[in-house]
Design a protein around this nucleic acid. Sequence first.
DNA 1: AAACGATGTGCGATTAACGCACAAAACGAG
DNA 2: CTCGTTTTGTGCGTTAATCGCACATCGTTT
Lengths: 245, 245
Amino acid sequence: MAALEKGLAVIECFDAAHEKLTIADVARATELSRAAARRCLLTLTRIGYAEFDGKFFRLTPRVLRLGHAWLASSALPQLVQPFLERLSEETHESSSASLLDGHEIVYIARSAQRRIMSVGLSVGSRLPAFCTSMGRVLLAALPPDEARERILAGHPRALTPHTVTEPERIMAALAAAREQGYSVVDQELELGLISMALPLANARGETVAAFNISGQVQRTSAEEMVAQFLPRMRSMQAMLRPLIK
Amino acid sequence: MAALEKGLAVIECFDAAHEKLTIADVARATELSRAAARRCLLTLTRIGYAEFDGKFFRLTPRVLRLGHAWLASSALPQLVQPFLERLSEETHESSSASLLDGHEIVYIARSAQRRIMSVGLSVGSRLPAFCTSMGRVLLAALPPDEARERILAGHPRALTPHTVTEPERIMAALAAAREQGYSVVDQELELGLISMALPLANARGETVAAFNISGQVQRTSAEEMVAQFLPRMRSMQAMLRPLIK
DNA sequence: AAACGATGTGCGATTAACGCACAAAACGAG
DNA sequence: CTCGTTTTGTGCGTTAATCGCACATCGTTT
């Protein structure tokens, strides 16, 4: 069913920078022929996932049904969300939970306190694993060889002057995270932004997800973050463990 | 492109009650032939949207990319989210924003304070418009005939002993909402749950979405909710108006 | 204005989807 | 446990849908 694969690729090529697209735009983004892109867009429009204003296509909120299908069928996001909300309320910092998918982390739940990042994060957002706190603790749970492979697959490049891009230095950070049981990332993703993450394990001890809190460096230094929030986060981690899967 | 339509239907048939499904389950839920359902599931598995354990298929977090495509390409959710978070922080009640899609409302942003509903709500969740506060203010913004049509299309049935299901009484509630500029729904969706919603209009005055605040009736009565929170919500509504679309 | 490049669309050749029929498993009754 | 029944999963030839070319059209550039 090649048509399904193409249609999903068409949906995914819409993002923050591309809210409305022409047939040719979609064809280029998906590497489909213009004719194929057109067929996909017309079908998506016919069944209500997209709309057409004579020039541009854009997605309709109907596509949320698709992402919601996973959110609703998966226990973890619903389980974690209220814990994140309490953590955010107590700490006045944003908190999130994510899974590892290839070389990226996928946000599965979030409680934001204020808009702190230039780009808004939401459920379904993806960020590179190698330079995020949750990515580090998730990579640290893999066998080192696989972690290295995934780091390389992501083609690490500097997002700020602080970003660590050398694979072996990243591997060292993973070892530290494994050792300490948490990871702090200081302005490697975005200037001014620091975050601390802990892994979430199931009752068998397998790491299945991670959660973090993040804030602005001018308000909370890395040291303060560990001192103030680590105990709370460790207790949340322990409470969740018997409840996961 | 019939295959695309079928594949999307397959994704959507996963939900909270159906986290893992067999080929035959999917065929029944989507009214496809077992062969067609199988082709869809195999394709989804091949391209990473589903996985198979020898007996059951389940979705992977990859499908979040699809919903995220709309979230990222749409200005409204990102705009409203921080406002909801402030509203929740100030009122200690959960708040949400939604759009009208047919006879249902679709959650596009949410800031939950505590788990108050038996069923967890998240971005992409759908509820009937006729018995929700946001649904009422959204329906109230339509021409009355269209509102009535959509109400009937949803086949209103009682969800609690308080649910108003008679179309004309719902229409009267819409008129009241239009008049007052807000709507309060008292335990019509779920026992113990009350909520108050206001419409969100763009600069041209067209209602494009709604936001609400919801809490437990034992903690806050309908009258208290209006008295305590309406002014705050009106001011949020006014702040957002020039920023929308 | 005229020529160019890029975009959107119809139409026949070709490939992929359909649904039947079979095999294999799951279920229930005796 | 065994047989009969029902339900499920899968291969294969026929049919219908997709492919990509060619043309028409629009917006730019010289």
